[in-house]
Amino acid sequence: MSSPARFQMPRSALIPVVVLALCILPTAAATWWTLLLLLVPVAVAVAVLRRGVDVTDDGVTARAVLGARTVPWTELAGIRVGERGDLWLVTTAATEVRLPVLRARDLPALAAASGGRIDVSAPPSRPGGDRAQ
């Protein structure tokens, strides 16, 4: 793998943030202290832009709003699919690291980005099994 793969929220997620900022603007302009309300859309925009997952030759890095945690390939024991389809890295130390912005449907892309280090040959099963309705 030559360049890192980056999984992040789509930039279109910023559209509701802009709408929120426009809705807050009349109230924020009322007095000087209500300008602090504009920090809400700024914080949400930072969260949208910052959160993500990077897959490199060194390992998998989960980026959160205020920090990041890298799990080297040598410490990766597997991946757990949560009840809601969220993905968790399971380490050899029996700790788990949530992969933000990735869901069970993203497993094939994550496996491809890992360069064969993550095997998803068997599809993940959902709790309670698949029910046709």
Rank of each mutant, 00 (worst) to 15 (best):
L39P: 02
L39C: 13
L39F: 09
V40K: 04
P41I: 06
V42Y: 00
V42M: 12
A43G: 14
A43Q: 06
A45L: 05
A45F: 07
V46D: 03
L49E: 09
R50F: 00
R51L: 10
G52A: 10
V55R: 03
T56L: 04
T56D: 14
D57G: 15
R63N: 05
A64C: 00
A64G: 11
A64I: 00
V65F: 09
L66I: 09
L66P: 01
L66Q: 02
G67P: 03
G67F: 11
A68L: 07
R69K: 14
R69G: 07
P72S: 08
W73H: 08
W73G: 08
T74R: 14
T74C: 05
L76Q: 11
A77I: 08
A77N: 13
G78P: 00
I79L: 15
V81C: 09
G82V: 12
G82D: 13
R84S: 13
R84Y: 11
R84W: 08
D86E: 15
D86G: 14
L87Q: 10
L87I: 12
T92V: 13
A93W: 10
A93I: 01
A93H: 14
T95V: 07
E96H: 10
R98Y: 09
R98P: 06
L99E: 04
L99S: 03
L99H: 03
